[in-house]
């Protein structure tokens, strides 16, 4: 009689050890990382630079896959449907915070757990060197006198230029023709060829062009001049009312399924905090034209909420979207 009892006991103890061990040893195999934007883009560059530092801390391999399309909906949807065991990470940009507003999907980053908000991109409004404008104030004045004449490069509804255009229009009036391109790259190319008059762009996309004198900066989206771009005035010089929206920028973050076990979340948060803070990555980020944030936990959630509320409401007030953020439960900033 005793023998089967022992066996059962042994099995019970063994299974507890196995179950406990599964989490204690995380990560015990490769981690799958999904990038919601295509190869060679800003998100892709940031993630591929950061990943080796994380791999070092976690002592595992992170297999990166680009699942681009639908402003990132496809990649995010994929990660949300995987098992919540911490072996599937989502690397994303700011866009999901606006999905319900744009009618693209029902979910936002509220439906996932933020591991780390890595950093945010600085934004510059750029033009070509032949342009008659030297500051954004001059351009704005011209646009007031000649509405609907200037050509602004855009990347479609929900893209960075359209958001900035909306922010400006919620406090001022900038009536321009929007020419839509497939991304920052084609937009910069059109600006270099003088086919458009100006375009709001992430600093990483234009820093080199400005340094070489192939493009010139009209304003930086911030309340102070940037050390890297001397002589380019802050946008608040032209529109002081924008102050209330700042600081604002497109951001990059790492996310996991909401139901991931807490100790796995903690392991990942710790690893990413160390990796983002590492000298190697910080050097890359500065060179890339980004600003380090390295937020997790409560701070990350706060950043995400604030970003969503500022952006959604300014878009609504500029009539860039039909749905009211109120209906979606996004509080006023």
């Amino acid at each position: 009689m005793t023998k089967p009892l022992f066996t059962q006991l042994a099995i019970a103890i063994g299974s507890i050890a196995v179950a406990g061990g599964a989490f204690a040893d995380y990560p015990e195999r490769n981690i799958q990382g999904t990038i919601q934007w295509g190869a060679g883009g800003a998100t892709d560059n940031v993630v591929r630079s950061l990943t080796p530092h994380v791999e070092e801390v976690l002592d595992t391999t992170i297999v990166l896959t680009n699942r681009a399309g639908g402003t990132g909906v496809i990649g995010m949807n994929h990660v949300m449907r995987q098992r919540p065991d911490g072996y599937n990470l989502l690397f994303g940009a700011e866009n999901p915070q606006l999905y319900p507003l744009m009618g693209l999907a029902e979910f936002t980053y509220d439906d996932m757990h933020p591991i780390n908000i890595i950093g945010q991109g600085l934004v510059v409004i750029a033009t070509h060197p032949e342009s008659e404008f030297d500051t954004f104030a001059e351009l704005l004045e011209y646009a007031h006198e000649n509405p609907g004449e200037l050509k602004m490069g855009g990347t479609g509804a929900g893209g960075l230029p359209s958001t900035i255009h909306a922010m400006i229009n919620s406090v001022d009036d900038l009536d321009v023709r929007t020419v839509t391109f497939g991304g920052d790259g084609p937009g910069v190319t059109a600006l270099l060829g003088e086919h458009i008059d100006f375009m709001p762009l992430s600093l990483s996309a234009v820093a080199e062009q400005i340094r070489a004198g192939r493009l010139k900066g009209l304003a930086v989206l911030g309340s102070e001049e940037l050390a890297d771009l001397p002589g380019v005035p802050p946008i608040t010089d032209a529109i002081p009312e924008l102050e209330s929206f700042l600081p604002w920028g497109p951001f990059w973050g790492v996310f996991v399924h909401e139901d991931t076990p807490d100790d796995v979340k903690a392991t990942l948060e710790d690893a990413y905090e160390q990796a983002v803070a590492s000298d190697g990555f910080q050097e890359f980020l500065t060179n890339f034209g980004g600003e380090s944030l390295n937020l997790n936990g409560e701070e990350a959630q706060q950043y995400l909420d604030n970003w969503q509320s500022v952006t959604a409401w300014s878009m609504f007030e500029a009539d860039a979207v039909e749905k009211s953020p109120e209906e979606l439960g996004i509080p006023r900033p």
């Binding site: 990483s204 080199e208 062009q209 340094r211 890359f284």
Partner: peptide, 21 residues
């Protein structure tokens, strides 16, 4: 598309792909 990824490689390796390259 391939050169787009290569530009990313240059950035990650600390070079500045642009007119100054």
């Amino acid at each position: 598309a391939v050169t787009a990824v290569m530009i990313g490689a240059l950035v990650i390796h600390g070079l500045n792909p642009g007119p100054m390259l």
